[in-house]
Design a protein around this nucleic acid. Sequence first.
DNA 1: ACATCGATCTAC
DNA 2: TAGATCGATGTG
Length: 204
Amino acid sequence: MVKLAKDFYNRPTLDVAKDLLGKELVHHVGGENLVSRIVEVEAYIGEIDKACHAYNNKVTNRTKVLYAPPGTAYVYLIYGMYYCFNAVTEEEGKAAAVLVRGVEPLEGIEKMVNNRYKKGIEEISKKQMINLSNGPGKLCIAMSITKANNEMDLCGNHLYIKEAEENFSFDIVETTRINIGYAEEAIAFPWRYYIKDNLYVSKK
DNA sequence: ACATCGATCTAC
DNA sequence: TAGATCGATGTG
């Protein structure tokens, strides 16, 4: 098992975003590992990006974690109901992060299904299996990621990202980000990346 | 204090 | 396609 170290996150955010595709997100919770493959991400860079919560070097209670050392978790509440999970990137003091928007379940699937549907794996449809984690809010429910994980060190033992156990190749699609209609010129930035043809991508 | 608004999801 | 739902944020 090769856990991603601080160096991995301490690089240009667009590179980190692309390189996170195919990596495995692990949450050790309740005595078991929930593991999923990252298949869709978006980059947010405070300095130049009106879609970033820390645009214009804004520092608030919510955004201060974006300035934390690389490899820190940024989890925030969206629409009053859902959490979104990000990995903080670049050197400490520079506000940037990668939002994980879609993951493919690998281990602890029974638990993830229960987290989402309060049902067993045999009781759900094929469609529900895909809806398990093909979106930023959905994957947080499946993986039991909440505000309690905010500011957590992703180089620790509880919540982390590791290299894929088996190498496989894939094509990366690069496109614009979702639901940032307020962000003016940043709407056009092609900072969304996903694994081509993967079922757990939130939207084509 | 108070009004506004989401890096979303589900159900109608 | 509309509605849920509420913390974070900005304004007065």
